[in-house]
Design a protein around this nucleic acid. Structure first.
Length: 744
DNA sequence: GGCTACTCATATGC
DNA sequence: CGCATATGAGTAGC
């Protein structure tokens, strides 16, 4: 993950200060790097010229707004979050906790009226268990007597006084890890070799014989020789591969109007090839997974070892505590978030046990103290930490649910509650362990800002673009007293040297209304290698030397799905003062991998007149070969037997285009470099056919949580010889584990 | 004990 | 709203 540059933790800083999510990662020290991206701006001078698309704006309105904000602001830096008032100790009891639990709606901050501590609940006496069928509930068994026979026995230090994670270092002694052999049936997609067999009846993939999957320690996962030993890298690689596979499957499915659940297909392949991280179970944090990480599928949680079950909300394991009996303890829960209201409590959570509410209202029955519920109950007495993943259904968001890892919690109490439907339901109150970086709290906060930008503190200007962008671009400084970046003119479109009309036109398609993935005759689809380059939700499927969107010469409408980047960015950006890298760009919205972020806007520089002076331009964009991570974004086709679409540094061919955003540009001029970036550039054509001078569009390399700095790999000039000697080379201290040390 | 094969529980994602 | 289904626990049997 890119190291957001803006945070050097200091003792006096408020924990709730608005900071990027990742900065407190224990794995990486705070970045020390400084680059010279932003011109220094003296406090007295107007910081910039605000310009609309129509032309240069006199700036009167802007400047006065600027001053007003400034005066009104006047808050000390790094103290803006308190006003939002989350993190309180408010209890989450009552109405919210149970969609079905109306009886408690009025019970405020106290144990619900009809709540009974589970310890008081007397389980019904065990049925004569001799001939107990498989379905016999264990509910009846007294806890102490309950001794699961699962072979996955893991020993723990029997020492639960301390909060330290190390206490839960897991020694896997006997871990047979019996793999369930089950053919993975991938119906409805065709492979062109590789794993393929019998595409009519679906492809069967045998799961890897994984005798060593549970053995040893963490990372037997290797994708390829380059693969990192850094757990963070491994996790990101797994997720990137999953996403690449999923997008490609989606594309194939759409083309054939068949199949669904590309997420399941992708994970089937991942599992078949044993491409997963952190196999096995553990109490406490998962290596390479950081608080604030976001996910879009339950499968993603599963393949990185964060939460193994693909559907169930409670992940648990059997462990041996010292010389005591084996015990099942909960290790991770996914709080679905369907009962989410305006509850501001971000450090407590009331979780409902599982079971009982069968579909169709038939067969409703009391929840039983077994499996996950039992594990939670045992975790209450064991006091072990439990990972919490918060699910959040954004009403305004078309995509389904987003999951965010919110760190470690402990169960503080449990009780039984009668739901509206009349069944007994277990409730568990979880409290977030102190001292962890904020996760869900930042999420909630940024949602609030999106709903009402006025609630964002430390604002220097409400819209840097003065309306030129689809959404306002907030300028903020949580760090120091600097008033803004150096002077520049905000424009929203690239300034070409020649009028577009004089450029070679782009060939269009003759699709009526909209280009369809099933239509192989679509000219634009053919230009893109036979498929539409974007998914139906607008995600880029694959990184390519060039993407051709539909344009003016096409007959299709503006609603055609092959028009994505030309419509502009639709993200709530903010330009913010980083701690040590000048100004940077980040987003209030979560950004899903493959999403369009923004275009590199500036003045196209004439290749012939390119001078030494220009080469010192810090805002010059050139198509320099980026690092491995960016090049590998497509990794996935190889896994399903397709030809690799990847470009290697050897075959990379730069384009002649050079864009300078020094004097005029847009938000993308604030994107800093990182050797572990979360965005990449992609050439796109839609309004002209000069392939040497395409639009440079940025897409998300991975899921980007809100408030994480957006970065891309500036690349290295003369990678083969000496990038360091290059006139533009700057030393890089992005802080990532694979930092190259310099960039251009 | 090691292993396979089966059932069951879960609720997601489309 | 219905449907197909991945994962893992648990059980039975060889």
């Amino acid at each position: 993950m890119s190291r957001p540059s803006s945070f050097v933790p200091t003792p006096d800083q408020d924990v709730l200060d608005i900071k990027p999510l990742r900065t407190l990662s224990p794995m990486f020290p705070a970045p020390l790097g400084v680059n010279t991206f932003n011109q220094p701006s003296s406090p007295g001078t107007p910081p910039m010229v605000f310009v609309t698309t129509a032309g240069q704006f006199p700036g009167l309105r802007s400047f006065s707004a600027f001053g007003a904000q400034d005066a009104a602001g006047g808050r000390p830096a790094s103290s803006n979050a308190q006003a939002t008032g989350f993190g309180g100790q408010s209890a989450v009891y009552g109405g919210k906790t149970a969609a079905n639990g109306t009886s408690n709606a009025g019970a405020s901050a106290d144990v619900p009226i009809d709540a009974t501590p589970i310890s008081v609940c007397k389980p019904t006496p065990p049925p004569t268990n001799a001939g107990a069928s498989a379905g016999t509930p264990i509910y009846a068994t007294p806890l102490a007597a309950y001794k699961p026979k699962t072979p996955n026995v893991i020993q723990l230090d029997d020492d639960d006084d301390d909060n330290d994670d190390d206490d839960y270092a897991v020694n896997q002694t006997s871990a047979s890890g019996r793999a369930i052999k089950r053919p993975y049936r991938l119906s409805g997609y065709r492979t062109s070799g590789g794993l393929g067999s019998d595409s009519n009846s679906g492809v069967k993939i045998k799961r890897h014989k994984s005798s060593n999957r549970m053995a040893g320690t963490d990372h037997e996962f290797t994708l390829e020789p380059h693969s990192s030993s850094d757990p963070r890298e491994v996790v990101e690689e797994v997720l990137m591969t999953f996403e690449a596979l999923r997008r490609r499957h989606l594309q194939l499915d759409e083309a054939q109007e068949t199949g669904k659940r590309a997420d399941l297909k992708a994970s089937a392949i991942m599992n078949a090839k044993n491409l997963r991280a952190n196999a096995g179970r553990r109490i406490g944090g998962v290596p390479g997974v950081e608080i604030g990480d976001i996910f879009y599928f339950r499968m993603e949680l599963s393949i990185i070892g964060l939460h193994a079950p693909s559907m169930a909300g409670i992940d648990y394991m059997t462990a041996t505590f010292g010389d005591r009996d084996d015990d099942s303890v909960a290790i991770c829960i996914v709080a679905a978030g369907v009962y989410e209201n305006d509850d501001d409590a971000t450090d407590t959570l009331v979780y409902s046990g599982s079971g009982g509410n069968n579909r169709n209202n038939e067969d409703m029955h009391d929840q039983k103290l077994e499996r996950g519920n039992l594990a939670l109950e045992r975790s209450l007495s064991r006091k072990n930490v439990i990972r919490v993943v918060r699910g959040y259904k954004d009403p305004g968001c078309l995509a389904g649910k987003i999951y965010m890892y919110d760190g470690l919690y402990k169960i503080h109490e449990s009780w039984k509650e009668r739901t509206r439907a009349g069944i007994n339901c277990f409730k568990y109150k979880l409290v977030r362990e102190p001292g962890q970086p904020e996760g869900f709290a930042i999420w909630k906060m940024s949602r609030k800002w999106v709903a009402n930008p006025d609630t964002r503190g430390n604002v220097l200007h409400p819209d840097l673009s003065s309306g030129a962008e689809y959404l306002p671009v907030c300028l903020v400084n949580d760090v120091n007293s600097e008033k803004g970046p150096g002077l520049f003119t905000y424009i929203s479109e690239v300034k070409y040297l020649k009028p577009l009309s004089s450029l070679k036109p782009l060939q269009g398609c003759r699709c009526v209304s909209a280009c369809l993935p099933t239509d192989s005759t679509c000219g634009c689809s053919q230009c893109n290698g036979g498929n539409l380059p974007y998914s139906s939700t607008g995600l880029l499927v694959c990184r390519k030397p060039m993407i051709y969107e539909c344009g003016e010469s096409c007959l299709c409408s503006v609603n055609c799905r092959n028009r994505v980047t030309q419509k502009g960015a639709k993200i709530h950006f903010e330009v913010f003062r980083t701690e040590n890298r000048g100004w940077g760009l980040r987003s209030w919205d979560p950004i899903r991998a493959g999403s369009f972020i923004c275009e590199y806007v500036g003045e196209v520089i004439d290749d012939e007149k390119f001078s030494l002076d220009d080469s010192k331009d810090d805002y010059l964009f050139q198509t320099v070969c980026p690092g491995r991570k960016t090049l590998k974004w497509n990794y996935g086709p190889e896994l399903i037997g397709e030809q690799s679409a990847n470009v290697s540094p050897d075959t990379f061919e730069p384009l002649p285009i050079k864009i300078s955003a020094k004097k005029m540009g847009n938000i993308s001029r604030f994107m800093n470099h990182s050797c572990a970036p979360n965005a990449f550039w992609q050439p796109v054509q839609f309004d002209h056919g000069d392939d040497g001078h395409p639009h440079i569009m940025f897409f998300a390399l991975k899921h980007i949580p809100p408030m994480t700095e957006l970065t891309y790999d500036y690349g290295e000039i003369g990678a083969d010889s000496s990038g360091i000697g290059s006139p533009r080379a700057k030393s890089c201290l992005c802080g990532s584990s694979n930092c190259r040390g310099y960039f251009c």
